[in-house]
Deep mutational scan, measured.
Amino acid sequence: NTKMVRFKKGDSVGLRLAGGNDVGIFVAGIQEGTSAEQEGLQEGDQILKVNTQDFRGLVREDAVLYLLEIPKGEMVTILAQSRADVYRDILACGR
Rank of each mutant, 00 (worst) to 15 (best):
N1S: 07
N1W: 03
N1L: 08
T2C: 12
K3E: 01
K3Q: 00
K3P: 02
M4T: 13
M4F: 11
V5W: 00
V5R: 02
V5F: 10
V5I: 14
R6Q: 11
R6M: 10
R6W: 07
R6F: 05
K9L: 02
K9N: 02
G10Q: 07
G10I: 06
G10R: 05
G10L: 01
D11R: 04
D11G: 06
D11P: 00
D11M: 03
S12T: 14
S12I: 08
V13Y: 09
V13W: 10
V13G: 04
V13P: 05
G14F: 00
L15D: 02
R16S: 14
R16L: 10
L17G: 05
L17C: 02
A18C: 13
G19H: 06
G20S: 11
G20W: 05
G20Q: 07
N21Y: 11
N21L: 14
N21V: 14
D22C: 08
D22W: 04
D22M: 02
V23H: 09
G24C: 05
I25W: 05
F26Q: 02
F26C: 03
F26W: 10
V27D: 10
A28M: 09
A28T: 12
A28E: 11
A28R: 07
G29W: 11
G29D: 08
I30N: 04
I30Q: 09
Q31V: 13
E32Q: 12
E32P: 15
G33M: 08
G33H: 07
G33N: 10
T34H: 15
T34R: 04
T34V: 10
S35E: 15
S35F: 11
S35Y: 07
S35C: 12
A36N: 04
A36I: 10
A36C: 09
E37Y: 12
E37H: 14
E37L: 09
Q38K: 14
E39S: 15
G40A: 05
L41E: 01
L41S: 03
L41D: 07
E43N: 00
E43W: 09
G44F: 02
G44C: 00
G44R: 01
D45M: 03
D45F: 02
D45S: 02
D45N: 03
D45V: 01
Q46C: 04
Q46H: 07
Q46E: 13
Q46M: 14
I47A: 01
L48H: 00
L48W: 07
L48R: 02
K49I: 03
K49H: 10
K49M: 12
V50P: 01
V50F: 05
N51M: 05
N51Q: 05
T52K: 10
T52S: 14
T52N: 15
Q53Y: 02
Q53P: 03
D54I: 01
D54V: 05
F55C: 02
F55S: 01
F55G: 04
R56D: 05
G57L: 02
G57V: 06
G57K: 09
L58M: 15
L58P: 02
L58I: 14
V59T: 15
V59S: 15
V59R: 15
R60Q: 15
R60C: 12
R60P: 15
D62L: 08
D62Y: 00
D62F: 04
A63H: 00
A63E: 00
L65K: 15
L65V: 08
L67K: 02
L67M: 09
L67V: 03
L68Y: 09
E69Q: 14
E69A: 12
P71A: 04
P71Q: 00
P71K: 07
P71S: 05
G73V: 04
E74M: 07
E74F: 01
M75V: 11
M75N: 08
M75Q: 09
M75A: 04
T77R: 04
T77D: 10
L79W: 14
L79D: 00
A80R: 02
A80I: 03
A80S: 03
S82H: 11
S82K: 11
S82T: 10
S82Q: 09
A84R: 13
A84C: 11
D85Q: 11
V86P: 08
Y87F: 11
Y87L: 05
Y87R: 10
Y87N: 12
R88I: 03
R88F: 09
D89A: 09
D89H: 11
I90M: 14
I90K: 14
I90E: 11
I90Y: 14
L91H: 11
L91M: 14
A92M: 13
A92P: 11
A92Y: 13
C93Y: 13
C93K: 14
G94M: 07
G94S: 13
R95I: 08
R95F: 15
